[in-house]
Design a binder for these strands. Structure first.
Lengths: 148, 148
DNA sequence: TGCGATTGAATCGTGTGCGATTTAAATTGC
DNA sequence: GCAATTTAAATCGCACACGATTCAATCGCA
């Protein structure tokens, strides 16, 4: 017979649980900044390049507009970003940082440092693991359609 | 200055995105079984040991009762499990498989095989990566409270 | 024995996530 | 130059996920 597989042997479950664990770790770090974890990722994207469109942010985060639109609207309500239609292409909505949003970058500088420490890993180990998971993610997305 | 960090260098983001990628991969595999991914995890737990309480399932999956209660109720509606108060301790709710729920195990046997193939990794590589992420998860949960 | 503390589920409110659909704007074909 | 198609956001419905709270059952201990 094929070996019965438990949760403790599923890579997918480990990734799922690790994702929740990161979320729990970030929550108290981001709460003082008034950010949720996905909102923090949007901020990281915008700190890297301001004025991206919703779909560009979606490409960077691998999220759909149906997820991002309400999320970004909440960030706009919080005064962190501004949304405006692109004059060149009225279909696009550009998201740009407010002064408050820009100022938050300095206040959030410690966040990735804290998170890195919490992993209990050295920088090189983190990077190596990150790369392995990045390769895994690419494989999953590529072979997702070719079923089995 | 401290190096500005982008999404492409954050381990947490990679895990977050990989979790979504797994979800996308599993969706078409589980759809024919009438299961969502978290529901599938509950089934795996119950196939391993039937009749667990909500909190035991929660411990295995690292989920709260506020997440599991409605999820399991949906599974009950679908006729996969049955919920009943424990006679020994009326606070506990035991979740047991129905015949249909038990029968689903055979129909789902290919799921982890398909997922394994989609990773593009050999069994030993999967297990090695799984172990690394398991260690990471434990570190994150352990150091979460000791802030920084 | 009795009662305060603890435990196990459930409930509630908020915030993701996504597939399907809709709407409006831009692009393509002919 | 205009109809058909494509593209970008937004909307809608559904299903997690969690913290805070509630409620009932059990436990602990004087």
């Amino acid at each position: 017979m094929t070996q019965k597989i438990g949760l403790e042997h599923l890579l997918c479950f480990e990734v799922y649980a690790a994702s929740h664990a990161f979320n729990k770790l970030y929550k108290p770090l981001l709460e003082p900044l008034g950010l949720t974890y996905p909102q923090y990722l949007v901020m990281v994207a915008l700190w890297g390049r301001d004025g991206q469109s919703v779909s560009e942010i979606g490409a960077a985060l691998e999220l759909e507009s149906s997820t991002l639109t309400p999320l970004i609207k909440r960030m706009e309500q919080a005064g962190l970003v501004q949304r405006q239609r692109d004059a060149e292409d009225e279909r696009r909505v550009r998201v740009s940082l407010t002064d408050r949003g820009r100022a938050l970058e300095a206040q959030a500088a410690h966040v990735p440092v804290c998170a890195g420490q919490a992993t209990g890993l050295e920088f090189e180990q983190i990077e190596a693991l990150r790369q392995q998971i990045a390769d895994l993610r690419k494989a999953l997305l590529a072979r997702g359609d070719s079923a089995c």
